[in-house]
């Protein structure tokens, strides 16, 4: 796995999208500093990008990458390589460069334009952690879709549907529930429902540390009252890890039994 991962890293670091990720975050963060100047404002704007644009881009890139790598996957499996090693090696070799380019693209302008005080350091770290998880989760989902669906067009359709459901429909549903059942104690059900969506989880995790939950909707406020502690952070991160591991494990199981 390590050998495949190493070469996959080299391949991915030269990919146009990885370079685009880096330049996009570098330019966007720098521009935000130019217009806003305040670290918390920049973090909030980046958070919005992380929970809307990045899931879609990662889903589309991940599915495209998998479909375009079918020849490579076939060829590698004719070599003495285990299917599990190949699959995880490719996934990690794509995920890590994306995460690194996002972190570097955000961190460099912060180092240059912000004085990085303790007050903005924790929200920044939480933004980078959630941003990384968003990439990992949606790349796992992209591979899951591509392994399940051999037809490229249907795969892209499914990827866009997943993004639409998670980024837009889900919050609408939560809002609907909270309005419709306003007279009932909804804290616990909303906590459970929000945990089922990685975008909400990432947003809430970041908001807890940004102290701006009131700006980001009802779910954020509910979560903050429950998870202002270390336990809350651990639970949110664990849920994001589960969100990465589950689609990846299911797709790996399917990949291991798949005719290629």
């Amino acid at each position: 796995m390590k050998k495949i991962f190493n070469y996959q890293l080299r391949d991915a670091f030269r990919s146009k999208l990885v370079i685009f990720y880096f330049i996009f975050f570098l330019a966007f963060t720098s521009l935000m500093f130019h217009f806003s100047g305040e670290a918390s404002g920049v973090i909030t704007n980046l958070l919005n990008i992380n929970v809307s644009f990045i899931p879609l881009l990662t889903l589309l890139y991940g599915t495209t990458f998998y479909y375009n790598s079918k020849g490579y996957i076939l060829f590698m499996l004719t070599q003495p390589v285990k299917r599990t090693d190949l699959f995880i090696g490719i996934w990690a070799g794509v995920a890590i460069p994306l995460v690194i380019s996002e972190i570097a693209g955000i961190l460099i302008p912060f180092i240059i334009f912000s004085d990085l005080q303790a007050a903005s350091l924790i929200p920044l770290i939480s933004l980078l952690v959630t941003g990384s998880f968003i990439v990992l989760v949606f790349l796992a989902l992209a591979f899951f879709i591509a392994v399940l669906q051999d037809d490229k067009a249907k795969g892209f359709g499914l990827a866009i549907t997943v993004w639409f459901a998670m980024a837009l429909l889900y919050d609408g549903m939560i809002l609907g529930i909270s309005v419709f059942f306003a007279d009932y104690p909804l804290e616990l059900p909303l906590l459970v429902i929000s945990s089922l969506n990685p975008i909400d989880l990432a947003r809430i995790f970041c908001l807890i540390h940004l102290d701006a939950s009131a700006l980001m909707g009802y779910t954020g406020a509910v979560f903050q009252s429950y998870f202002q502690s270390v336990t809350g952070s651990i639970l949110s991160l664990s849920a994001l890890m589960v969100w990465t591991a589950v689609p990846l494990t299911i797709s790996l199981m399917r990949f291991n039994k798949k005719d290629l």
Binding site: Y7, R14, G71, M76
Partner: peptide, 8 residues
């Protein structure tokens, strides 16, 4: 058909 990573 070949199966090498395109950027290597």
């Amino acid at each position: 058909y070949h199966g090498f990573p395109s950027n290597l």
